[in-house]
Amino acid sequence: MSDLADKYIERFTLNQRLQHGINAVACLSLFLTGLPVKFPDQLGYIAIMMGGFNVTTVIHRMAGTAILALAMFHFLYYIIDRGWFKDKEIIPSPKDVTDVIEDTKFIIGLSDEKGRYRKYSYREKLDYWGAVIFFPILIVTGVILWHPAFAVHYFMPADYLPAVRLIHSMDAILAGMAVMLHMYNVHLSPRFFPVNWTMFTGMISEEMAEEEFPLWYERVKRNQREE
């Protein structure tokens, strides 16, 4: 085994990285083209720089289409693969609460050890489940706003559209804040600054894995030994 293989372990598959990449690009495009619509007086210049609202509208809808396809893929894939239920790595558990308590104790000096995470800490779970909960709201309201005539024809009075528009925009702002939190956690945090390459290469150094996700690291090493 090479030295490099001794030092790195796989954290994300190519499939997961591809999904994340599409999500990241689409979300950033959606924020960039959606915010000028929400705040045209303050941020309208962003749309003008991109070629005007006619252009940003098209980009917004293309990115929305990508998110819609991605959400569908993700949902179907995890049903087929049963990834959510096999290892239960991403499912929130009582241990997340104890990890938060352990971390808080660590911060204020009551403990010398921070929480020992499995594959995903409560921060990653918050990012993921935030997206799982809020994306469907954005997708449904987004499709209604895209084709209001469709929604009005089948299931909604026309004068409910302002409420739908409000939900879509405010949910998007919340999602934007969640992305900023995510960016801090994975890139701007002093431990990873300036960039964390794990989601790009799929690999994490053993040193970092042991430090950040010790229980997962121990399990990976145990599996290696058993092989």
């Binding site: 001794d6 796989e10 594959k119």
Partner: peptide, 12 residues
């Protein structure tokens, strides 16, 4: 074999 990839990702 340096990592039990399938077991890790729940893809046994």
């Amino acid at each position: 074999g340096y990592v039990n990839k399938h077991a890790e990702m729940g893809e046994k």
